[in-house]
Structures are given as structure tokens and as C-alpha cells.
């Protein structure tokens, strides 16, 4: 499974998102510190889930970080996140 697919699978399983986009932006960072030649280091995630309802921005992002902690301490060098509950 690619890193992007793993991210998608874990977020889907843990947070039952209403909508989820995982974009691999590694190409934009080619040659930067942390970039690997095989890519899959820089990701942008946009996720809408009921799980974020009532949480602060920090708590929402911490929740996503927690689900992806293995990836963050492994191949993923940078992860930007837009996490919102539905209709906000």
C-alpha cells in the first residue's frame, strides 16, 4: 500500500469522514530537506468528519496526528491538515 493509501485507510477507519482528500504534494518539495527521491513525503489532507464537532482547532489537528502517528514518525516529513466538522 502506498503511503497515501495508508493515510486514507487509517483516517477512514478511525474518523468515518464525510469527505476526505489526501494530496501528495511531494513533487512541489523535490530536493528539499526531508524529500525522498521516491516521493510520498509531503501531504495535504482535507477532512470533514463529525468527530471534529465541538473540538478546538488544536484538538482537531491533534486527533488527525494521533491517527497518523506512525506515518509521521516514519516516511511523512510534512503534513498540512484542514479538519472541519460538516457545515461549518
Amino acid at each position: 500500500m502506498s503511503v497515501a493509501e495508508t493515510i486514507k485507510a487509517k483516517l477512514t477507519a478511525e474518523l468515518s469522514p464525510i469527505s476526505l482528500d489526501v494530496n501528495d504534494e511531494s513533487a512541489k518539495h523535490a530536493g528539499h530537506v526531508g524529500a525522498r527521491p521516491e516521493g510520498e513525503t509531503h501531504f495535504h489532507v482535507e477532512i470533514i468528519s463529525q468527530a471534529f464537532r465541538g473540538l478546538s482547532r488544536v484538538e482537531r489537528q491533534r486527533l488527525v496526528y494521533k491517527v497518523l502517528s506512525e506515518e509521521l514518525s516514519g516516511p511523512v516529513h510534512a503534513l498540512s491538515i484542514k479538519a472541519t466538522p460538516p457545515a461549518e
Binding site: R57, V58, Q61, R62, Y65, S69, L72, S73, A78, L79, S80, I81, K82
Partner: peptide, 25 residues
């Protein structure tokens, strides 16, 4: 801060967030 990424912003001793949050705010 229990926050796995850098940058991190603190205001008056309180953790505010990283890049995404600062931008959104």
C-alpha cells in the same frame, strides 16, 4: 506541546498551533 510538527506558536505561555492553524486563524 504534544504536537509532532514545527513551527509552533506560543502566546502568553499558551500553545496556539502550527502553520495550518495560524493561517486559518
Amino acid at each position: 506541546s504534544s504536537w509532532p510538527t514545527i513551527p509552533q506558536l506560543y502566546v502568553k505561555g499558551e500553545f496556539v498551533g502550527g502553520c495550518d492553524i495560524i493561517r486559518e486563524m
